[in-house]
Nucleic acid binder design. Sequence first.
DNA 1: GAGATTAGTGACAGTCGCTGACAGTTGACA
DNA 2: TGTCAACTGTCAGCGACTGTCACTAATCTC
Lengths: 236, 236
Amino acid sequence: MGRADTTTPANGVPSPPRPGLRERKKRRTRDALLRAALELFAERGYERTTVDDIAEAADVSQRTFFRYFGGKEEAAFFVSRMAEGHFVEAVRRRPPGEAPLDALRHALGESWDSIGDSIGHLVPLDLHMRFYRVIESTPALLAAHLRRANELEEELARVIAGREGLDVDTDPRPRVVVAVFGAVMRVTERMWSAGDDAGLPALRDLTLSYLDQVEPALSGPWRTDPDTPGNGSGTP
Amino acid sequence: MGRADTTTPANGVPSPPRPGLRERKKRRTRDALLRAALELFAERGYERTTVDDIAEAADVSQRTFFRYFGGKEEAAFFVSRMAEGHFVEAVRRRPPGEAPLDALRHALGESWDSIGDSIGHLVPLDLHMRFYRVIESTPALLAAHLRRANELEEELARVIAGREGLDVDTDPRPRVVVAVFGAVMRVTERMWSAGDDAGLPALRDLTLSYLDQVEPALSGPWRTDPDTPGNGSGTP
DNA sequence: GAGATTAGTGACAGTCGCTGACAGTTGACA
DNA sequence: TGTCAACTGTCAGCGACTGTCACTAATCTC
């Protein structure tokens, strides 16, 4: 209760008190489960990895796995969940004057930069990216991913509606813009996962470049448009 | 193999030969299972309906259910699957000169008209619409629905790419347009399922009206735009 | 510091979706 | 009419997930 467990460094900002042994143990177990899960998913695939496998790799019982994660799916998307939280916060911080699509685009650019580090604190970044590619080729994971993306869009639509002073239940436009934004993101993920460069910067660049093409792509005609290269990525 | 089983009416178009007893029995079993499934889903909800319940309601064994449908999910989306097939065909039939988004929009308008009847041949239309609203409120169903929508978009992207003479693997634009189209459809479904009018015409009108708003909604600002009503539907 | 409290865990049993194997039944066709 | 293939039911089993209960260990109380 004294000063002993509230480490306050010189900068004045009080860092959260060092958690007790129990809390640290819990964290270690969760991280071990998370890492074991992602490793197995990336190696053998999602479907061919049983919860028993994960529990055994983390040296706990199956029952314990389910105490940390609601299911296989929750473990699979634990990292993404955190990354999405960062993004939503970035959107909330954008200046109110900005047009919706610009706000989303800029927030994405910002959070991309910090997300790599945040992920690295949980699991090796490389592992996460390897797993991320598995999503696209696993129907059960893709379905879950899309459902989660849908929920995220709903949250974003409410943020956008708030910025613009609109009611999300009567005006469809906030949802439409966010849905268009999300649609481009998903196309990007698909193209990225099919490409050669599985790195995070490649995904980042592809995303931002495709977002720039939304409006041109909607207003055809396409055939007579030679100065827009077909491939929006850096690879010619 | 003679003329006896090829009923050719006066109009000259040969209707398919009347199936044998075995085939008719199969169809009856399948329809009974389908109808029982949708009825139970609409009444008790998807999750609280077991495959055993469905099989029992259709008076067959659980094993038989799985011989007709790959799983609960496949039974749930059997009707939608057929409707989607109609739509894709309508897109393929659109004149080549049309801009992609227009082709999609017009094909949708066309297939909407015939879809009601097609569904009615399988299950009561009212039942289908009641079930369709369950999707939005059932995470497992929503996930499956979104994954299926994603697959449909992939197919449409290839059709569009073919019409425009583009390669879907290097040019992101076909996928982007189709994704935007799909995004609007999903927003519509969401607004429809939250609204009062659960009928098929309401869904149809809402869809077409929202599609008209895609481009205006993308190019803000919104606040200073009094002549575009917030609610795109017919209800003021 | 010893005992009471409580969180975390493992072991076990059970449900539900789904699959493989095997045997019995029934429509199709010679 | 008898053979054959298709269709079906029964049974056994796997994997995801949940409830229960007893046991251990971190934390709290005195």
